[in-house]
């Protein structure tokens, strides 16, 4: 377990963390403000990646692909909101779960139909494709640093919006008590739509940024959706700050757990059982973490007040 490897894995953990944050932020806001469980949030991440691949193929420029894919993600999100989701806001959580699950099935299969089942890839922009030397003997790909930086930047922008603008104030108020906000004369439906659109765009952005280093394939949103739910539940539903901290925590725990579980277990176990148990234990780690957090704090680490 060398220091270099540790640093690389911490950076990888951070990268997974900011990615999760981008997805979880939208999810927690939609959930917190509208009390709406949107399982289809993961598909919107997938859609972002696919749209980026498509627009890159059309324009040949990553920046153009980024902008167009963001706009298209927003469009898809608002379309879904208009056609399906707005009929579900005052429904039971379970109804929302089924309907959005139906949308997952539809879009996963739709993507397969349009772009094929084979994984696609998106090249890293030329200027950002190399690696940099962070320390003597430590090379790290620039693009991953770009992901970390843009995720942190998005987090800062979000923090500024939520904490220091009028619309952010309404969002926070909505997360605490949506009925009261509506009674005070705020058009809550419009607020919902803004929050929803913004969340969709963040998820799409995450998909676009990760596309160059992951393969773009149907179903890529499903696993990340579960992780994002783990994040918002640990962080406390409706809390951006909670989502941010929990996302980094999950990213680091998961990545470090996977890389070092064998080494750590070998301190206690013989090599061969350690090698068998370690992968399972590493995959389990974040769920153990969630169970412990919920055991100690049944509403997550930073519950939005008043719920």
């Amino acid at each position: 377990m060398s220091t270099t490897l540790l640093i690389v894995q911490i950076l990888n953990g951070l990268q997974l963390g900011v990615l999760l944050f981008l997805i979880a932020a939208g999810l927690t806001l939609v959930f917190g403000v509208m009390d709406f469980i949107n399982l289809a949030h993961g598909v919107q991440y997938m859609l972002g990646a696919y749209l980026a691949v498509m627009f890159y193929g059309l324009t040949g420029s990553f920046v153009a692909a980024l902008v167009l894919a963001l706009l298209a993600s927003l469009g898809c999100g608002l379309l879904l909101e208009f056609v399906v989701f707005r009929h579900l806001y005052d429904r039971d959580h379970l109804d929302q779960v089924i309907a959005t699950f139906g949308i997952i099935l539809f879009l996963n299969q739709g993507v397969k139909l349009v772009w094929g089942a084979a994984p696609l890839s998106l090249p890293i922009p030329e200027a950002l494709s190399g690696s940099v030397v962070l320390m003597p003997g430590l090379l790290y790909p620039v693009w991953r640093i770009v992901i970390i930086a843009s995720g942190l930047a998005a987090g800062l922008v979000l923090y500024g919006l939520v904490a220091h603008t009028r619309i952010g104030m309404l969002v926070r108020a909505g997360a605490t008590n949506a009925t009261m906000v509506s009674a005070l004369g705020v058009d809550i439906r419009r607020l919902f739509m803004i929050v929803f659109g913004f969340g969709t765009m963040l998820a799409g952005f995450a998909g676009i940024m990760i596309a160059p280093i992951l393969s773009v394939e149907p179903g890529m949103g499903d696993t990340i959706l579960i992780l994002a739910f783990v994040v918002i539940v640990i962080g406390g539903i409706g809390s951006i700050r909670g989502a941010f901290i929990a996302a980094l925590l999950i990213g680091l725990v998961d990545t470090l757990g996977r890389s070092f579980a064998v080494d750590i277990l070998r301190l206690f176990l013989a090599p061969s059982p350690a090698r068998t148990v370690a992968p399972a234990l590493a995959s389990m780690l974040i769920y153990l973490l969630m169970a412990v957090v919920l055991f100690l704090r049944p509403s997550g680490l930073f519950p939005a007040r008043g719920r």
């Binding site: 959930f31 469980i37 959580h93 579960i226 739910f229 783990v230 539940v233 539903i237 068998t276 148990v277 992968p279 399972a280 234990l281 995959s283 389990m284 769920y287 153990l288 969630m290 169970a291 919920l294 055991f295 049944p298 509403s299 997550g300």
Partner: peptide
């Protein structure tokens, strides 16, 4: 001990633990 969505998620957590135990 938990309610609502937190109950959904914590049961998911235990389900996943069982899943990964089985795969190991």
């Amino acid at each position: 001990r938990t309610r609502g969505v937190y109950f959904i998620m914590i049961t998911l957590a235990f389900g996943q633990m069982a899943f990964f135990t089985a795969s190991s």
